[in-house]
Simulated scan of single mutants.
Amino acid sequence: MDSEIELLRAMIKALPDPVFVITETGHYLEIAGGKDPAYYHDGGDLKGLSLHDVLPEDKADWFLEQIRETLEQNRLQTVQYALSQNDVKGLEQAPGPDGNIHFEGRLQPLPITLRGERAVVWAARNISSQRELEMKLQQLSETDPLTGIFNRRKFLEQLDRCFRKFKRYNRPTALIIFDIDHFKRINDSFGHSTGDKVLCRLTKDCAQQLRQVDSLYRIGGEEFAVLLPETNAENACQQAERLRQVSEQLRVEVRQSPVKISISVGVSEFTDADTSIEDLMKRADARLYEAKGNGRNRVVGD
């Protein structure tokens, strides 16, 4: 019997991930496992303390909410969250990973009361590497590989979000669509590598003209879009004119001969009559083709 108890204690102590017993009022009753400093900080000193003793109030409240929800539903619950050693008082100098650690927490109600309280077993697993991979894959799915800016998929997602916000709060949002005039000639005359350089330079120069809240997207071969929150069409036209002027100043040296470009630009904004993002996109496209039809290298807006 003693050997079985010793084995059980050794197993609990050797658990690769930390396991906490926490009461419904947020007190740490027991802590085991998770001793590898490559993955975790040693939380053994938290025993006897409460969540509000060691965590910022908003984080402690969130943990308590998960515990109480688990106890109310009386079933296993899985959550994800991030914590750093600086979030937990007493762990500031403890050996362990730097920065935020992303965790998957698995909460299971205990079938007994402890010190007159219900409690849960909270097993925490470090999923930071998995989270990092997921973020990289998401970034790849949203980013144009040549220019490094957002792609069409991200553009449509963000435009839809702006549309729902406009419908709910009636806050103005403008859209700029532009493309490079006679871009095919550049590729045909100087090669696709020069065309790629033009795209990258234009992207960089235009991005520098935008506010932090604005977003630049490559939505086609040489076609780009800019979303401008809290902006009406008149102010967006002024921004579009700055982009047009920047494009005129761009030079890419090829065989001691600078390649020059210009852009044609269409501008519109959401209106109360719009029923979908396609309405705004059609108007901006129509203004773009109007700019092309009127001689290119110009801005046309609502």
Rank of each mutant, 00 (worst) to 15 (best):
E241G: 07
Q80P: 03
G99F: 05
K47P: 03
A233W: 00
D98I: 02
A94Q: 15
G220P: 13
I5L: 15
E134S: 09
S129P: 00
P258T: 05
H192Q: 10
G220V: 13
N126D: 15
V19L: 15
M135Y: 01
R171W: 02
Q108E: 11
I177Q: 02
I31T: 10
T78D: 08
I261D: 07
Q256P: 01
D36Y: 03
D17R: 08
D285N: 11
V54W: 08
G295V: 12
E223A: 06
P56Y: 02
R68W: 00
E72V: 06
R251D: 07
V121C: 14
A207Y: 03
G116Y: 06
D98L: 07
L159T: 01
L71Q: 06
D274A: 07
K47N: 05
R171P: 00
R75I: 03
D36M: 07
I31A: 12
R242Q: 11
V19Y: 04
L216I: 08
A286L: 04
G293R: 14
M11H: 07
G301V: 09
L83F: 15
K154Y: 02
R218T: 09
L107M: 13
V300I: 15
E134V: 04
R244K: 11
A233P: 01
D87T: 13
Q158F: 06
E57A: 14
E253L: 14
T147F: 06
P16E: 03
K13M: 10
Q249M: 08
V198W: 04
Q66W: 09
G293I: 05
V198H: 05
V54I: 15
V79Y: 15
F163R: 04
A233V: 05
K13H: 15
L216Q: 01
E248P: 03
F155N: 00
D87F: 13
W122C: 07
G105P: 13
G90Q: 09
R153F: 07
I219R: 03
A14R: 10
T78H: 08
F63Q: 12
H192W: 06
Q249L: 08
D274P: 04
L159N: 02
S268V: 01
L228R: 01
I127C: 10
D17A: 15
H52I: 12
S276W: 01
L55C: 11
G295Q: 11
F150H: 02
D214M: 02
D87S: 14
K136R: 13
I12Q: 13
G44S: 15
L133F: 07
Y40W: 08
A233F: 01
Y39S: 04
R185C: 04
P145T: 11
P95D: 11
G96L: 05
D214H: 02
D205L: 08
F178C: 02
F20C: 11
E278Y: 07
W62M: 15
D87L: 12
H52E: 15
R201N: 13
M281T: 08
L202E: 06
D98E: 14
S268G: 04
D53T: 11
V54M: 11
G116L: 12
G148T: 10
R251L: 08
K35G: 08
V226I: 14
E269Y: 00
G34V: 06
L199V: 12
V21L: 14
R171L: 09
I277H: 01
I177R: 00
A123N: 14
S276G: 10
Y169P: 00
I176F: 00
E134N: 05
E278F: 04
F178R: 00
